[in-house]
Structures are given as C-alpha cells and as structure tokens.
Amino acid sequence: MPVTLRGSDGVSYRFDPGALCLEFVTTGGSVVYPRYELLHEPADLSRWTAESRLGLDRVETTPEQLGRAKALRAALWRMAADRANGRATAPADVAAVNEAARLPPPVPEMDEDGRTARLAPATGDQVVSAIARDAIDLFTGPYADRMRECAGYGCHLLFVDTSRPGRRRWCSMERCGNRDKVRRHRAQSR
C-alpha cells in the first residue's frame, strides 16, 4: 500500500515500502531523521494506524505505549538497513522485535451482519505487536533477502523489492528514479 511522503524540499511523492513494518519506519525517528518525526504524542500513533495498512481507526494509546512503538521503530530501522546492506543483525534489535511481538495482537471481530470482518478497537501495544509480527514474517520469509535501501543520492528509505525480476533500485520512480535519470542525462550532456 503506497504512502505519501514529503521530502525536505516540500514535494510530496508516493512510496510503497512493501510491508507494514517498513511503512512504520517512515514515521520518522528521533536519532536518524528527527525532522520527519510524525509521532509526537499518543494520538499521532492512532492517526497513523488509521492511514496505514492496518486501517485501525479506533486506537487508544498511552505515552508509555508510544515509547514502546518508537523503540520498536528504531530497532526495525537498524535491522532493515543492516539486511539491505548485507550486515549482520544486532541481537539487541532482534530481541526488541521478539519482545514487542509477545504483546497481544489486535483482535478481529464481525460486524452485526455476520459477513464482514474488521479489527476491534485496539491499544497502542496491540499495534506494536502487529508491527513486530509483520517484521518477523518479513525477516524470516521469502522476501527477507529483497530488502533494499534506495539508490537515490542522499535517500535512505528502506523497502521490499517485490518486483518480479528483483531489480527495484529506488524508493519511488517519480522522485529518486527520475532524479537519477536527470543527473545521468546532465552528466552525459556535458
């Protein structure tokens, strides 16, 4: 599910990270990319879950749960970057994901008609659990070796290359892919 991101130049573009856990990584970071931080208060996690692949529009989050979500995000960022760049994964990051996955996940329920399923109202910890479980599926599944870091100059977005040939290089063709082509054209024109 593509998300809309805004670059430091203010231009919006579509980006499909390919997995819920990598979609969550794009919510910012206090250490790596503080200017992109989206999770300032508990209500921000609730807003993100409504717009994410989870589609949960009823999430109650405490400040402590938001802290756990940010800690998970930092571990996921490091793990995905390590995997994309052929480095070993830090045991502490694996432990953080495993610990988060042990929390109870969101619970499905049926609508009154008995024909439609949805997720019941959830807590911030249930969201954290769902993200961690998605990460376990990704890091141990068939696309584990298809995590990539964008090849665009100065871009470090992480994504799963789900293309058939496995040759995706950029976070977004309309942004980094196009910029790379313009750069190469200008270099050839000189």
Rank of each mutant, 00 (worst) to 15 (best):
R83H: 09
D82E: 15
Q126N: 14
L72E: 08
R118N: 01
P63N: 10
L39R: 04
D134F: 00
L56G: 00
V128S: 10
N98R: 12
L20A: 05
G29L: 05
P105S: 13
A117R: 12
C21G: 06
L22Y: 02
A81S: 14
A130S: 11
D134H: 01
S129A: 15
G114V: 03
P42C: 11
T61R: 08
S12C: 05
D16T: 03
M79T: 15
L54S: 03
V32W: 14
W77D: 13
A43M: 10
A84I: 12
P42M: 12
Q65V: 02
T62H: 06
P105R: 09
L76S: 05
E23W: 00
S46K: 09
E23L: 01
S12D: 12
Y33N: 15
L56W: 00
A135I: 02
A50M: 03
T140P: 11
S12E: 14
N85V: 11
G28E: 09
R14G: 08
T123N: 06
I136M: 12
A71V: 04
M79E: 11
A81I: 00
T61N: 08
P121A: 06
G28L: 06
F15P: 01
I136C: 09
W48L: 04
A100G: 10
D44C: 10
L22I: 03
Y36N: 14
R73C: 04
P121Y: 00
P34D: 10
P142G: 11
A92C: 05
P104T: 08
S12T: 08
D134A: 05
P34R: 08
D137V: 05
A96V: 02
W48I: 07
E60A: 14
D57P: 02
E112T: 06
S30K: 13
P121H: 00
A117G: 13
K70I: 06
H40E: 12
S30M: 08
L119V: 02
T61H: 10
H40C: 06
R47K: 10
G29K: 02
N98F: 02
V107F: 03
L45C: 09
C21M: 07
V25C: 10
T140R: 11
V32T: 15
V32E: 15
R68P: 04
A135F: 02
L72N: 08
D113H: 00
A96N: 04
A132I: 03
E51S: 11
L56V: 00
V59P: 05
R35L: 13
V127N: 11
R35C: 08
D44L: 12
E60S: 14
V32N: 14
S46L: 06
P108T: 04
D16Y: 01
L54G: 04
T116D: 08
P91A: 13
A69M: 06
L45I: 05
P142N: 12
R78I: 00
G141D: 07
L54Y: 02
N85L: 15
V32C: 12
L76M: 07
Y143D: 15
V97F: 01
R87P: 12
L45P: 09
P104W: 07
A132N: 05
Y36K: 14
L22D: 06
L39Y: 03
V32P: 04
R102D: 15
A135M: 01
G18P: 11
R87L: 14
G55S: 01
S52M: 00
L119S: 05
Y143E: 13
